[in-house]
């Protein structure tokens, strides 16, 4: 029997056509693949007192993993991810839902305004928030006074609150992105399904919870994947606001690597950290893809 499932690709087959793939591949090989290989290799070396690089096997890994600072960073990253990802999703999702479904003429306005923090330069944001958090002249103090709280020093100066203060900034900046992904997801919802559900009697919360949320699963999956990567990428906010302190209370992988490699000059341990972070990212991504299916765009496309 005839099978029309055989994919119809255009036949060209000439080697010259691989030129199409060349620029992207070249960029990848030089700037991604080679650095990764380099870093993997470099992590196996260490600098001796004389400045020589000698092969050290997994010694670097041992050193890094037994350093308590490393585990503080891991803890910080976990906190970071566990808070930012769901909170951004929920707030972003709520905003997206109400903006898309319940506004009309002001829709563009709201979409744009909530997305502005995303396009605002992160260094600008960091410095503004430092000012906001400032204990005597920052406005955070002003508003907290209303609740009877006085800050003796800035939230970002206090080891107990530093990381949460930074997380707040992150949420402030990036929720607009989650919102936009959900907006795209909602725009792609077939209206017939929603209409059918409403005829079935689902309204308000029920409609949202039982129909809309499950159908936004692709967007949610994308956000989860991007959120994990994004969490591991965190650098500017921390570097500019606390530098990772005080006492590593807000240290993240990005700043840790930065300090090891560029401040202390210990490329061996910097490389090792780079490899570890890379592996963590890969494993988490693969786990998510395997369990939830990969989706990179919020539209209902076939999984990669």
């Amino acid at each position: 029997m005839m099978t029309k499932s055989a994919r119809r690709g255009l036949r060209f087959g000439k080697p010259a056509l691989y030129l199409f793939a060349l620029p992207a591949t070249l960029l990848f090989v030089v700037f991604i693949a080679y650095p990764i290989l380099w870093v993997a290799g470099q992590s196996l070396f260490t600098r001796t007192a004389e400045g020589q690089m000698v092969f050290a096997g997994f010694a670097n890994y041992g050193a890094v993993l037994s350093d308590p600072a490393f585990w503080i960073v891991v803890r910080n990253m976990v906190i970071w991810g566990l808070i930012t990802i769901p909170v951004q999703m929920v707030i972003g999702g709520l905003l997206a839902y109400f903006i898309e479904r319940h506004t009309y003429r002001l829709r563009s306005f709201f979409r744009t305004m909530f997305f502005l923090p995303v396009v605002t330069s992160v260094s600008v944001i960091s410095l503004v928030w430092v000012q906001i958090y400032a204990p005597y002249y920052g406005i955070a103090q002003e508003y907290l006074k209303l609740f009877g709280i006085t800050m003796s020093f800035s939230p970002i100066g206090d080891p107990a609150t530093a990381i949460y203060a930074l997380i707040l900034v992150n949420i402030w900046q990036w929720t607009g992105f989650s919102m936009l992904m959900y907006i795209a997801g909602i725009a792609n919802l077939p209206s017939e399904v929603l209409d059918a559900a409403r005829i079935d009697g689902a309204r308000g919360f029920r409609l949202a919870y039982d129909v809309v949320v499950p159908m936004l699963a692709p967007a949610t999956k994308s956000l989860l994947l991007l959120g994990i990567i994004g969490t591991l990428q965190t650098f500017p906010i921390v570097h500019l606001m606390t530098g990772g302190g005080p006492n590593r209370a807000s240290e993240v992988f990005g700043t840790y690597i930065f300090k090891q490699s560029f401040v202390l000059g210990d490329t061996g341990s910097g490389a090792t950290l780079s490899v570890i972070v890379l592996l963590v990212a890969l494993v988490l991504s693969l786990v998510q893809i395997v369990f939830f299916g990969a989706q990179l765009s919020p539209a209902k496309r076939k999984p990669e």
Partner: peptide, 20 residues
């Protein structure tokens, strides 16, 4: 293969890129 780039945190790459 190119997709794996998306999973690589920039933090892991800055050191080798800087040297490169």
């Amino acid at each position: 293969t190119l997709l794996t780039t998306l999973m690589v945190p920039l933090a892991s790459l800055v050191l080798p890129l800087a040297i490169l």
